Amino acid sequence: MNKLMTKRKNIETARMKRWFIGVKGNDGLLIRTLIYGLLIGIGFVYLFPVIYMVSFSFKSLEDLLNPLVNWIPSTLHLENFKQAYQVLDFFPTLFQTLYVTILPALAQTAVAALVGYGFARFSFRLKNFLFVLVMVTFIIPPQVTLIPRYLVYSELNLLGNIQAFLLPATFGQGLNSAIFILIFYQFFRSIPKTLEEAALLDGAGHFRIFFTIAIPMAVPAIIISFLFSFVWYWNETYLAAIFFGDQLTTLPLELQKFAASYQRMFPAGMEESASQLNEGIRLAGTVLSILPLLIVYFITQKWFVEGVDRSGITGE
């Protein structure tokens, strides 16, 4: 009888342990609680500034000064977005931003794919040295080479136009190009060489193999590289302000001088400027400046996740 009771007790203990901890540490209540708690905490850290920004961008000056109005505005004050839209000169600035962002991102992705394929599939003298040299270009801060680059661009008449971004990207020296070369290098190394050897036996050349075999299989790496390149060129303000001057502008650049532009457009005595620049108007300008990026993320989220997932596939 005692043995039977002991056996039942052990079974119940094992069942409770399996329910609480799980099998081999998986799917248990404790593990799930820890994982979901961690994910909720990380998500809150990232979402809190966005929620705060969107909420306060719709607040009027009265709501901002009222301590009883916290997260939900009493009314949706769209005047903030109207003034921010005018200060940013939104659509002309957006078109210029896309112009100086998409073209260099496309050129950088294409060149990084070609260079990464060359390093992954061909053996030549000084290959390792050149690869290390490419990685060094990422380690050196751009501020170190800023003055020589500025002088060279000035002599070549590249300042004040998109060539200051496009030409370096075309020659594999765009923003963080070394990272994208490394991504393609690792990806092409994972593709089985038997595919290329079979194509060589059929008479295909290296360029044909690259465009008909390597590139279609590298779609995940292309998506990842283009999206990251697009975002980095979009957010670049330091180099853009120096190289473009007053000839070209971007939404992040206009956001940096938002206060000065607002004071110039809506002086203190102006009738339209019933409420001077406040936090709601600033945050409305911030929302407008990041809205295109959010739209891009929502549209490309599926392909981006698939690209990250598929880029982990390994070959022989």
Rank of each mutant, 00 (worst) to 15 (best):
residue 86 Q to V: 08
residue 276 Q to V: 04
residue 156 L to D: 09
residue 206 H to G: 02
residue 1 M to C: 06
residue 140 I to R: 07
residue 114 L to E: 07
residue 269 G to W: 07
residue 247 Q to D: 12
residue 140 I to V: 15
residue 22 G to F: 10
residue 284 A to G: 02
residue 97 T to I: 07
residue 166 L to D: 08
residue 74 S to F: 03
residue 155 E to S: 10
residue 96 Q to A: 00
residue 232 W to R: 07
residue 96 Q to C: 00
residue 313 I to F: 01
residue 46 Y to S: 03
residue 299 I to Q: 04
residue 67 P to S: 10
residue 62 E to Y: 04
residue 258 F to T: 09
residue 37 G to Y: 10
residue 7 K to G: 10
residue 203 G to T: 06
residue 243 F to P: 14
residue 11 I to D: 06
residue 104 P to E: 12
residue 249 T to C: 03
residue 107 A to F: 05
residue 205 G to R: 11
residue 121 R to E: 04
residue 165 F to W: 08
residue 59 K to L: 03
residue 26 N to R: 09
residue 68 L to S: 05
residue 179 I to T: 04
residue 101 T to H: 05
residue 7 K to V: 11
residue 253 L to P: 07
residue 313 I to M: 10
residue 278 N to C: 13
residue 161 N to I: 15
residue 179 I to E: 02
residue 233 Y to S: 00
residue 94 L to S: 04
residue 303 W to Y: 15
residue 207 F to M: 15
residue 88 L to Q: 05
residue 10 N to K: 14
residue 151 L to G: 01
residue 245 G to S: 01
residue 42 I to H: 04
residue 250 T to D: 01
residue 127 K to M: 13
residue 52 Y to V: 01
residue 98 L to N: 00
residue 274 A to C: 03
residue 37 G to N: 08
residue 270 M to Y: 14
residue 258 F to C: 05
residue 72 I to F: 02
residue 238 Y to I: 05
residue 180 F to W: 14
residue 90 F to T: 01
residue 198 A to I: 12
residue 148 P to K: 11
residue 131 F to V: 04
residue 59 K to W: 02
residue 90 F to R: 07
residue 91 F to R: 06
residue 166 L to Y: 12
residue 297 Y to E: 05
residue 136 V to R: 11
residue 143 Q to E: 11
residue 164 A to F: 11
residue 119 F to H: 07
residue 181 I to V: 15
residue 266 F to N: 03
residue 38 L to I: 11
residue 74 S to W: 04
residue 67 P to E: 09
residue 218 A to S: 13
residue 148 P to Y: 07
residue 197 E to L: 10
residue 210 F to N: 06
residue 131 F to I: 06
residue 301 Q to A: 05
residue 10 N to L: 14
residue 220 P to Q: 11
residue 70 N to T: 13
residue 186 Q to G: 15
